[in-house]
Amino acid sequence: MIPCSVYIVTLNCAEWLESTLESVKDFSEVIILDSGSTDHTYAIAESFPNTRISHQDWQGYAGQKSLALAQCKNDWVLNLDGDEVLSSELKAEIEQTIQSNQLDALITPINDVFLGVPNSKHTKKHAKVRFFRKSKGRYDLENKVHENVIVDGQSVRAEGDIYHYGESSIFVKVEKNNQYSELKAQEKYQKGKVPSLLKLVLVMPLTFIKSYFIRRSCLNGWRGFVNSMVNAFYAFLKEAKLFEQHQKMKNKQDNL
């Protein structure tokens, strides 16, 4: 068994969870913290001998993952979502990193399988720290969404991917973006960020250019165009909702 703990937070992930757990069946333990699934998430988790699942009321993305991380027993840990699958290439890199014991973390590319098809190999993928020494990593609990592991040590970018299957339809992606943009706007407001009219006007076209051309989503055909348009609208929503947060507070103050 690979001496590494895998930790996952779930909510109704039965559609993908079996594939997720199959990809990490050789790891010594898998910790799942579930926030109230009503599908077959528990039954699937309990069918894997290296997996332990328990309930935890939702504490926010960073808070929930921090609690799952705290339950891990190994020095090395890997974070996956319940709709992600570890590639065999990345699995081999993880084993090599543990054996060499020279690094503290791997920055892992996330290959978004949008509408059932992975990105072109030439598309520039976003990447996050997902594999690291437990003693060297922590979460910033002020981040409400798009949580990142902060590593006090040496990190390198991995070659192998984590495949993300959650964006199975345009409807699902847009729903998630609506939820995430609400959380990000609240986070920005709480941190004292001031909205910008110039950014509100420019953020959507500039984000589309970055996604479609610079990150090369144009190589993904019509799916790449749709994905870039949705990404651009997400960026616009974050700024528009920050304006909304400030307007709500101004209205409250005016009514006092």
Rank of each mutant, 00 (worst) to 15 (best):
I44Y: 01
E89F: 04
C13A: 10
D26Q: 04
Q102H: 08
I98E: 01
L80M: 10
I209Y: 13
A158V: 15
K91F: 06
F48Q: 03
I162F: 11
L198R: 12
Y163I: 11
K134H: 11
K184V: 10
A92H: 02
L197H: 09
N79A: 07
W222P: 07
K173L: 08
Y139E: 10
P118D: 13
V117K: 13
I209A: 15
K193F: 06
S155P: 02
F208D: 05
K65Q: 11
H122L: 15
Q179K: 06
Q59D: 04
G192C: 11
D75A: 11
E15S: 07
L11D: 00
K184P: 00
N143C: 06
I8S: 03
P109M: 07
F233R: 10
F225R: 13
I162N: 07
P49Y: 02
R133Q: 12
E167G: 09
E159G: 14
Y212H: 06
K191I: 12
Q154M: 12
R133A: 14
I110H: 12
G60W: 00
L219V: 12
M249N: 14
K136P: 00
K241H: 11
Q247M: 08
P3G: 08
L80H: 14
N177R: 06
S28N: 01
V194P: 00
L11Y: 04
H126T: 15
W222V: 15
E95W: 05
H122K: 15
V149W: 07
F171G: 10
K125M: 15
V6D: 03
R215Y: 03
S168D: 02
A92P: 00
G63N: 03
Y7A: 00
I209E: 01
A70P: 03
T41P: 01
L198M: 12
T108E: 04
E15D: 11
N143Y: 06
T123S: 15
G82D: 03
Q102V: 13
S54M: 04
Q190L: 12
I32R: 00
W222R: 13
I2A: 05
K144M: 12
V9Y: 00
V24Y: 06
V226T: 14
E46I: 04
E29H: 09
L80V: 14
F225H: 14
S211D: 07
A62K: 00
R52P: 01
H55V: 05
S54H: 07
V24H: 08
F48N: 05
L69F: 04
S23G: 05
A232I: 13
S23D: 03
N251H: 10
E239P: 13
E22Q: 09
Y61Q: 07
L86H: 02
K248N: 13
V149I: 15
L237K: 02
S66V: 04
Q71R: 10
K134E: 05
S5W: 01
N251I: 03
I44L: 05
N101E: 05
